[in-house]
Simulated assay, not measured.
Amino acid sequence: MPNPARTTSKQSVAVVGSLIRPLAEHPPAARDQNPGSRSLVEISPIEVARRRSAAWPGFRAETVEIMRHTTFEYGFQAPCHLLIAAEVAERYDGETFVEGLPRSTLRDFTQKLTFVPAGHDFRGWQRPRALTRVTYVYIDPRGPLADPALRFEAVEFKPRLFFYDRDLWQTAMKLKSVVDNSDSVHRQYAEALGVVLTHELVRINGEVELRRSVSRGGLACWQRKRVATYIEEHVADDVPLATLAELARLSPYHFSRSFKHSFGVPPHRYHATRRIERAKQLLANRDLSVTTIALRIGFSDTSSFTAAFHRVAGETPSHYRRNLD
């Protein structure tokens, strides 16, 4: 996967500014006059950062590791919300600024969250005491996964700097794990986390009360049958959560809750189980290799198939096949 930091243009690097200058020396007129052109947090110098990202409908998650004990700067302003989860963040010196809040010179903000609403300026610099590890989550205010009942795109979010919320932190760390293991994590799981994330952000913002209009009885019979049939017909495909929700004529959030009530497991886990059941049927055919079966049911390689099969069945595909004798 290409390193996003290495594709940064010279113009956008210039936006971040010269190293070590205090934030007070960066007047607004000197900053980017077209902030919407930047879709990721800019880091300068770019070579100090190792970045990895994954994207889904309406949001993107990115993990960033600072590789050297050298002073670096960062900046961001875009028409999307930004959630920052700092897993390791200790500095000898530095400042952080989120538009609408006072500057902070906090030295240790490990396990702290920051939320930058769409359009707000976020920038800072630091001389790291420990090598920084941080996860950025970029959320489209009009993303298709957001529950319509939330009116997420209309919420006037407040900026927050260096705070902690257990549920929001856990969701961010789950997204970090998805990025780190993107080859083996089911798409529907990541999208479900995105749905949860929008609700958590509205909750901590305190501006809107969530409306719990979901049916407590789960999916109707026609919805269960329609969704289950579709999954069977597309068991080898990476089916978006929004597609399944549309089949049931529900929002992704309400669909996920109702599906779990009806089937006992979330959609992504049900789909994964059905995929492994299909694999078991194919393993009975000795003419098909394990690699062929892996590709036929939607895995890119044998190792990811073997890991997924073991998680569901408790044994490897080869061991399962030997026990068929």
Rank of each mutant, 00 (worst) to 15 (best):
A149T: 15
E47Q: 12
Q33P: 02
Q111S: 12
L83P: 06
A78K: 09
G143D: 11
R142L: 07
P128N: 08
H26Y: 15
S39P: 00
S104D: 07
L131F: 06
T110K: 14
S37Y: 05
V137A: 06
T70D: 05
L101I: 06
I139A: 05
W125M: 05
S104T: 14
Q77I: 00
G75V: 04
G75P: 01
E95R: 09
A49E: 07
Y74E: 09
D140A: 11
T71H: 14
R107D: 09
L131D: 09
F76G: 04
Q111D: 15
F157P: 09
W56L: 07
V98S: 01
T110F: 05
V88G: 02
R60M: 13
M67G: 07
A61D: 10
E65N: 14
D121H: 10
Q33R: 10
R151Q: 14
P57A: 04
G143V: 15
E99M: 00
L23N: 14
L19H: 07
S44R: 13
V116K: 04
R151P: 01
I43Y: 09
E95S: 11
Y136H: 15
G119H: 03
P45K: 04
V134H: 02
G119K: 06
N34R: 08
L161V: 12
G75T: 08
P22V: 04
R38Y: 00
P159W: 08
F157T: 07
L131H: 12
A86K: 12
L40V: 10
Y74P: 00
H26K: 14
P35D: 05
A55I: 00
D108C: 04
P144S: 13
T135F: 12
T135W: 10
R151C: 08
A55C: 05
P45T: 05
